[in-house]
Design a protein around this nucleic acid. Structure first.
Lengths: 203, 203
DNA sequence: ATGCCGACTTGACATTGTCAAGTCCCGTGA
DNA sequence: TCACGGGACTTGACAATGTCAAGTCGGCAT
């Protein structure tokens, strides 16, 4: 609806993309949108609200990608691997979003519950896929040993893809590959070897 | 040697610990050290140099922890697991350091090579342990299929522990456990299941 | 004694986030 | 038709910050 509101969000994300979230300046955003330095305040109470909205939208887009992999054909283990690939692909496709999504000091989750809700939505597909993969899709009752096991496996899967994504964006893996092809091949090989390793865990 | 230099570094780390790196203010640091707002500039050319020094020291301490696990007794696979545990333990023990260590936009690695060197030093133990574990300690010649396999396994191991650490610090895992014991048990379970899974990969 | 230099201070400037107080315009009710 | 009310925006101000420029001061070598 409001044109300026979207322009502010777009310019903010662009600024974060260019030089990191520290370089996000409301006044520069206003300048790029061709309005006065106070115009953004009409749509967002303060800076944090802009970042919170970007975080919520980022988690929503990630959730959509992961949910799409759930609907793919094939065995649950294959769909779980697709979800991992989608997670990393999202981070590489939207680095600015991905980074602010995991920087809790930027957004007070109590003041902006939408961000937390979107995060929970992104978490759910992974839980469902792991459950399907390792417990036949039937969720064990909470507190049981089987539930703890699923919990542990979810953490393991998420840790792997999240670690891979962050090391690619901000760690040593980001500065290592000459071509995108080499990078993608390394990602594929890593996910493949992990999938094979975890296959031995399936009951 | 210089007292103020160390005070500046300590106060800076404390500020980052309290409210994130965005809250690092040179003037507040000076205030806490009881000196004028320009005194820190005599020891560090600008803000980035302080962060760079903290990053280098952080990587050095991480490297020392990982090197210590290399010297532990037991099979290589056990020492690799200890290294993973040490990695996560470091992140939990020094969250402020860990966070700035993986935020490349904060420090220009070309201008501050010490930070990159320390990072490389922290990387090395993991490579050695994985090599020992999966190739009997003899490093395969570069470019060979065996070398690529080691490479992939290193990425997998690092991704897992790095992801686990960052999710504990800044992700959903950080807000999830009522007690430290519950958190540590979950970490242990995750590392154990991962170790078991990867054991099936050993040649 | 003198000059120098390292360690620090004082002062200034542009930039930023945000509060306060306008201005302008468009739709609605009388 | 006209007041008017409120949404969308502007102008102006303020304190805080990073950093440049120009001091001050004390000890050490010559």
């Amino acid at each position: 609806m409001s044109d300026l509101r979207e322009q502010v969000l777009a310019a903010s994300l662009a600024l974060i993309e260019e030089d990191g979230v520290a370089a996000l300046s409301l006044r520069e955003v206003a300048r790029r949108a061709g309005v006065s330095h106070q115009a953004p305040y009409h749509h967002f109470g303060h800076k944090e609200a802009i970042v919170a909205e970007l975080v919520a939208r980022g988690f929503t887009r990630l959730a959509e990608r992961l949910e799409a992999t759930e609907r793919a054909r094939g065995a649950a283990s294959r769909r779980l691997m697709l979800a991992g690939r989608a997670y990393v692909a999202f981070a590489l496709a939207e680095p600015a979003s991905f980074r602010i999504m995991f920087r809790p000091e930027l957004v007070d989750r109590a003041a902006f519950p939408a961000a937390g809700d979107a995060g929970a939505r992104a978490y759910a597909p992974l839980v469902r896929l792991v459950t399907e993969c390792h417990a036949g899709g039937r969720a064990p009752r909470t507190g049981s040993a089987a539930a703890e096991r699923i919990d542990t496996l979810v953490t393991m899967h998420w840790s792997l893809v999240h670690g891979l994504a962050t090391l690619l964006l901000d760690g040593s893996l980001g500065r290592r590959f000459a071509t995108r092809e080499a990078r993608d091949a390394h990602i594929e090989a890593t996910l493949a070897v992990f999938t094979r390793a975890t296959a031995s865990l399936v009951r």
